[in-house]
């Protein structure tokens, strides 16, 4: 038996909107510690890892570990029927081939339930090693989204270079080139407006902008984004989800042949 009650149901709506175009089908794993997902895009270039810790739910019951295969497009269609202020409860019985989403309006005057068919998904679970990253940049998520959107009008790839001076986003295309430098800026009024660079070694890596732009759909989940870079690893683009957990996007770099 599984029963997870999320008072801030909009978080789950936002999570789905941020991953449904990247990943078609995924297994949601439920254990006593939380509700999680790990899935790659169909090209195996990007990976998304989601964690919603059990403590973040108002009610969390998961009698035994469960893996529920869901089509994210269909899940998104159902969650879109929930109001932004609704409380969302996810329910499933052991061995059932369906999951139920229940939506309660804040005043309890409207209660809906949607039952969705589960699917068998044969997906490989990857072990993501703990790593020390050479450069970690934290910046306003809206600023990062703006940069990715702006650069994708000019080129297909972005070179992200971190030095002590700042982080540089560069692209080149048929019409010309673009460079955007964000300097470390910790003297702002609000901490979420700061750009903070923690660098042990300078790093410069190239990534497909199409994926970066897709990741920025998670911008509504967090005011800040953390970009972790190392020359031998995929970049990690992380959005914290309130007090509950995170959504992390991993993207393999493009390498000069």
């Amino acid at each position: 038996m599984l029963e997870l009650r999320l008072v801030q149901g909009s978080l789950l709506k936002k999570v789905l909107e941020s991953i449904k175009d990247l990943v078609n089908d995924a297994n949601f794993d439920c254990s006593s510690s939380g509700f999680s997902l790990q899935a790659m895009d169909s090209s195996h270039v990007a990976l998304v890892a989601l964690l919603l810790r059990s403590e973040g739910f108002e009610h969390y019951r998961c009698d035994r570990n469960m893996s529920m295969g869901m089509n994210l497009g269909n899940m998104s269609k159902m969650l879109r029927c929930a109001g932004n202020d609704d409380i969302i409860t996810i329910k499933a019985d052991d061995g059932s081939d369906t999951v139920t989403f229940m939506f309660e309006s804040p005043t309890q005057d409207k209660i809906s339930d949607f039952e969705m068919k589960l699917m068998d998904i044969d997906s490989e679970h990857l072990g993501i090693p703990e790593a020390e990253y050479q450069s970690i940049v934290t910046m306003p998520s809206a600023e990062f989204a703006r940069i990715c959107k702006d650069l994708s009008g000019i080129g297909d790839t972005v070179v992200i270079s971190v030095t002590k001076e700042g982080v540089k986003f560069s692209t080149r295309g048929d019409i010309g080139t673009a460079n955007i430098v964000c300097r470390q800026n910790t003297t702002v009024d609000k901490p979420e407006e700061a750009t903070v660079i923690n660098m042990s070694e300078p790093v410069s890596l190239t990534f497909a902008l199409r994926y970066m732009n897709s990741f920025t759909k998670a911008t509504t989940l967090s005011n800040t984004v953390t970009i972790s870079l190392s020359s031998e690893l995929p970049v990690v683009v992380e959005y914290k989800i309130a007090e509950m957990g995170y959504i992390r996007f991993y993207l393999a770099p493009k390498i000069e042949e």
């Binding site: 090209s43 195996h44 270039v45 490989e124 990857l126 991993y250 393999a252 770099p253 390498i255 042949e257």
Partner: peptide, 14 residues
């Protein structure tokens, strides 16, 4: 020309 790497080249399956 750049070669797009894959995630599985960095992370192993369990």
């Amino acid at each position: 020309q750049c070669l797009q790497k894959k995630i599985v080249e960095y992370f192993d399956g369990d």
